[in-house]
């Protein structure tokens, strides 16, 4: 039906070229050469424009954008690493400072302890010296007293013996006897 109408239409179409006046237009070979020529010209031009101008340009735009995005991402990554490093350094320093403070405290404590110990030792030594001195003095006094005790004893004994025996014994004999008695007792 389409074709019969096409025939009819073409026959009545006065404006159409003489060559293919009675053909269905898309199958009219007289127009082929012109269509091919202008298709070649226009499509060829379009191909040149796309391959030389349009596609390189859009490709470059997309590539620049892709590069920029990846660059931004790597920049962000770098900044993140930097801040991580800063945090790590801060924490390290904090730990070091706290360790230092601890050490200083420890040292101060030890120093104080050492000083106190030294002081105490000095005092103790002094006290011990004085004690020793005192003991020596006591011993001296004691020895002196003991020596005097012997003399008193022999004096007393001489006096007693003299009283009893009527003074016929010498003081030297009595002293010897007293010393003997002391030695035996010891």
């Amino acid at each position: 039906m389409i074709f019969s109408r096409a025939w009819a239409a073409s026959e009545t179409d006065a404006g159409h070229g003489a060559g293919g006046a009675d053909v269905f237009p898309p199958f009219d070979p007289t127009t082929f050469a012109s269509q091919l020529l202008w298709l070649a010209i226009s499509f060829g031009l379009f191909y040149l424009l796309t391959s030389r101008v349009i596609l390189p340009r859009i490709g470059a735009i997309l590539e620049v954008r892709r590069d920029r995005i990846s660059q931004d991402l790597s920049e962000a990554q770098r900044l993140k690493e930097e801040s991580d490093a800063a945090i790590a350094a801060y924490e390290h320093e904090l730990a070091q400072a706290s360790a230092n403070a601890h050490k200083i405290g420890q040292e101060a404590r030890e120093q104080a302890k050492r000083e106190a110990d030294a002081e105490r030792e000095k005092t103790e030594a002094e006290l011990a010296g004085r004690l020793e001195e005192a003991e020596k003095r006591i011993a001296d006094i004691k020895a002196q007293a003991m020596a005097q005790v012997g003399e008193i004893a022999s004096d007393t004994a001489t006096a007693i013996v003299g009283e009893l025996l009527g003074g016929r014994i010498s003081k030297a004999e009595v002293t010897r006897a007293v010393a003997d008695a002391g030695a035996r007792k010891a």
Binding site: G19, S34, Q35, W38, S42
Partner: peptide, 20 residues
Amino acid sequence: VDLSFTNSSLFMVATVAVSS
């Protein structure tokens, strides 16, 4: 050989011109 600039040619050129 008929190589006339036709309405078809016009729209081919227009297609290319507008797209480009």
